[in-house]
Simulated assay, not measured.
Amino acid sequence: MTVFHPKKPEKEVISMRIPKDVLEILDQKSAQANISRNEFINQCILFALAHMENEA
């Protein structure tokens, strides 16, 4: 039988400035998705990074 070992992903605390109107949209969208603002921003960043054109 496989044993479950819960793991907490390593994360770094940062601070960033976001325009108020963008923050309002982030809050609305994260509430609609029923996830935290932090998780929503992380998923947006990962999506953007995965879909960027590779420029030198």
Rank of each mutant, 00 (worst) to 15 (best):
D21R: 00
L46S: 11
I45K: 05
E24D: 14
L46M: 12
M1Q: 07
N54R: 04
E53Q: 11
A31S: 11
F40L: 04
C44T: 11
K29C: 04
D21W: 02
L49K: 06
N38M: 03
A33S: 11
K11C: 13
P19R: 01
K8F: 08
L49F: 10
S30W: 01
A33K: 05
T2M: 09
A33C: 07
K11E: 13
A31C: 05
L46E: 14
L49W: 07
Q43M: 14
M1F: 06
K20T: 03
E39K: 12
K29M: 06
H51M: 07
E12F: 15
Q28Y: 06
P9F: 02
V13Y: 12
R37N: 02
D21C: 02
V3F: 04
N38S: 15
N34D: 08
K7T: 13
C44Y: 08
Q28R: 13
I14P: 00
E55K: 14
K11Y: 15
P19G: 08
N54P: 00
A48P: 01
L49A: 13
Q28V: 05
P19K: 06
P6S: 04
I41P: 00
N38Q: 12
N38H: 07
K8P: 02
E55Y: 04
N34M: 11
M1S: 12
M16C: 15
M16Q: 10
F40I: 03
Q32V: 09
H51Q: 11
K29L: 07
S36R: 07
E24K: 02
Q32P: 00
M52H: 12
P19Y: 03
I41S: 00
I41F: 01
K11L: 13
